[in-house]
Simulated assay, not measured.
Amino acid sequence: MLKALLVTVLLSLSALPALAVNPDEILADPVLEQRARDLSAQLRCMVCQNQSIDDSNAELARDLRVLVRERIVAGDSDEDVIDYVVSRYGEFVLLNPRVSAKTYLLWGTPAVLFVLGAIAVFVYTRRRPEPGSARLTAEEEARLEALLKDDAGRG
């Protein structure tokens, strides 16, 4: 009895990601449906943010799943479908963004700023005079001696 319950629970939990796709969305051709699932797994739900449209129950995710299937049925390649969705929603819709000059700039800027900051700290510390290295002028030494004698005479 316990074994049957455990198997039932595990089987029901394993199907959770598949629950987002409604039966009316599924394509009759299993090859096209698999392509649609693969593409949907690459696209971000704009409502849920870190969930693919394949896993999301949001209305916008449903609309995107239908759009992906329509483009596939129309004969678009996988790249064409992705390009079409990106042209409508921007690069943010991709769960794994494409590598481009923008992504290099985005990921490289913190490293460049860190290196520039390290250089600035190095230059600043090299230019600072070391404590005790500044020499007093003769006039300053005479004044200091007078102050010290004056102070010693009082105490």
Rank of each mutant, 00 (worst) to 15 (best):
Ser87Asp: 15
Glu130Thr: 10
Ala134Pro: 01
Leu94Ile: 06
Pro131Ile: 12
Ile53Met: 01
Ala120Gln: 04
Pro110His: 08
Gln49Arg: 14
Ser100Pro: 07
Leu19Met: 14
Pro110Thr: 10
Val99Arg: 10
Trp107Arg: 12
Leu106Ile: 08
Glu130His: 08
Lys3Thr: 12
Gly155Leu: 14
Leu60Ser: 08
Thr137Phe: 06
Leu147Asn: 11
Leu13Ser: 08
Cys48Arg: 06
Met1Tyr: 06
Ile26Ala: 12
Val115Pro: 01
Lys3Glu: 15
Glu140Gln: 15
Arg126Gly: 02
Leu13Tyr: 07
Asp76Leu: 14
Leu136Gly: 11
Gln51Ile: 09
Tyr104Asn: 06
Ala58Met: 01
Val115Lys: 02
Glu141Phe: 07
Val7Arg: 12
Pro30Asp: 11
Ile26Glu: 09
Ala146Trp: 08
Glu130Leu: 15
Leu60Asn: 02
Glu25Thr: 05
Ser77Thr: 15
Ser77Trp: 03
Leu27Arg: 02
Gly132Val: 12
Ala120Val: 11
Leu94Trp: 04
Gln51Cys: 09
Val85Pro: 00
Asp55Trp: 04
Leu32Ile: 05
Thr125Tyr: 09
Lys3Val: 14
Asn22Ala: 13
Pro97Asp: 02
Ala41Phe: 06
Glu70Lys: 14
Leu136Ile: 05
Tyr89Cys: 03
Leu94His: 03
Leu116Pro: 00
Arg98Ala: 14
Arg88Pro: 01
Ala61Arg: 01
Val66Gly: 02
Leu11Ser: 08
Ala118Tyr: 06
Leu148Lys: 11
Ala61Gly: 03
Glu25Trp: 03
Gln51Met: 14
Asp29Leu: 11
Cys45Ile: 01
Arg65Asp: 02
Glu139Asn: 06
Gly90Trp: 08
Val99Cys: 06
Ala18Trp: 10
Val123Ile: 15
Asp150Ser: 14
Leu136Tyr: 06
Asp63Ala: 15
Leu32Met: 14
Arg65Ser: 05
Leu136Thr: 02
Cys48Val: 02
Asp76Glu: 12
Pro17Met: 04
Gly90Ile: 05
Met1His: 09
Lys102Arg: 13
Asp151Lys: 13
Arg65Gln: 07
Pro30Asn: 10
Arg71Asp: 11
Gln51Val: 15
Trp107Ile: 11
Lys149Pro: 00
Arg135Gly: 04
Leu113Arg: 07
Thr103Ile: 13
Glu145Asp: 13
Val47Arg: 02
Asp38Gln: 13
Asp29Val: 11
Thr103Arg: 11
Ala20Met: 01
Tyr84Met: 04
Arg128Met: 15
Gly155Val: 13
Ala118Gln: 12
Asn22Tyr: 08
Asn22His: 09
Leu95Gln: 09
Val47Phe: 01
Asp29Trp: 07
Gln51Asp: 09
